[in-house]
Nucleic acid binder design. Structure first.
Length: 280
DNA sequence: AAGATTTGACCAAT
DNA sequence: ATTGGTCAAATCTT
């Protein structure tokens, strides 16, 4: 790994830290402002919605960055293996083994390839179809099971499992554990409806409010960018759009965060191990 | 009508 | 017997 690559991932960590910092400040501001507005119910609702939108937007940015880093690492490793003619063969063997196990679909056979904790479990750049939900003993929230939407068209057998965590601060923050199983073998833009960056699953309902969205989180018109040599890459430029929106918000809150657009494009070629340790 | 989600049933693992 | 992952019919949405 060269110095440039190292600095690129370092930058992404800096951005994540800054956004986390913004979120913390937002929470503080939220706790200060809400009590002041106790007698102005109409404004209070609006302000609460604005806070919710800003918080949600920051969370999306972090999710994007985290997943981005992970996908880069996986893709880069794959490309390196292809160059070396080595581990890639092993990967194919694993996939074949998974396919052969098809007869036993009642038990999970795909290996866990990663997990993360996020506020936006449905916002990871892939399209998923829910195929089950289960109440888990001793857990407050049920667990949801999703398959890649490309299973029919391309036989992509990737799945993910989402479960909301029980911890909760002030009712405003909801955290979800997301586990990813099996590698994506699909090209994402083969799905008929690729306008949404989020999964087609309905968005997580907002707490203590109707589901109307303010202008800041209105429908994002996002389209995937496919690079033949980097299939399954997430949509770099669209993430940058999101990030720029969040940076604008950061400026509004008087936090000076700078992002070099070129850095994000360069991530596709970096070879560093996961610097964030988000995949456990 | 087609596609997506919900939900109870089924079944393997423990 | 219990748990949790998956199936598939029913239902909902577009």
């Amino acid at each position: 790994m060269n110095v440039l690559e190292s600095s690129i991932h370092g930058d992404s960590q800096v951005v994540i830290n800054e956004i986390e910092h913004q979120k913390a400040l937002l929470m503080e501001l939220h706790d200060i402002i809400l009590p002041i507005l106790y007698s102005h119910n109409d404004r209070k609702q609006l302000v609460q919605q604005l806070f919710q939108d800003m918080f949600s937007s920051s969370s999306k940015s972090i999710s994007c960055l985290q997943l981005r880093c992970n996908n880069d690492n996986k893709e880069v490793n794959l490309i390196r293996d292809q160059r070396n003619g080595g581990k890639h063969h092993m990967k194919n063997c694993i996939l074949e083994k998974e396919a052969k196990n098809n007869g036993n679909n009642r038990r999970k056979t795909a290996q866990l390839i990663g997990s993360l904790v996020t506020h936006e479990p449905h916002y990871d750049g892939y399209q998923w179809r829910k195929y089950g939900e289960k109440r888990i003993s001793k857990a407050k929230h049920s667990r949801s099971y999703y398959r890649c939407a490309n299973i029919k068209a391309q036989g992509c057998r990737a799945t993910k499992v989402v479960q909301e965590q029980e911890s909760d601060r002030s009712g405003m923050v909801r955290l979800f554990d997301v586990g990813y199983y099996g590698q994506h073998i699909c090209k994402k833009d083969d799905i008929s409806n690729t306008h949404g960056f989020e999964t087609s699953h309905e968005a997580i309902p907002r707490i203590g409010h109707n589901n109307q969205r303010s202008s800041s989180t209105l429908v994002h018109d996002i389209h995937g960018i496919e690079d033949n040599s980097f299939q399954n890459m997430v949509m770099v430029h669209d993430e940058v759009e999101y990030l720029m929106k969040d940076i604008e918000m950061g400026r509004a809150l008087d936090h000076d965060v700078t992002i070099n657009l070129q850095d994000f494009e360069l991530w596709e070629f970096s070879e560093q191990q996961n610097p964030l340790n988000i995949w456990t």
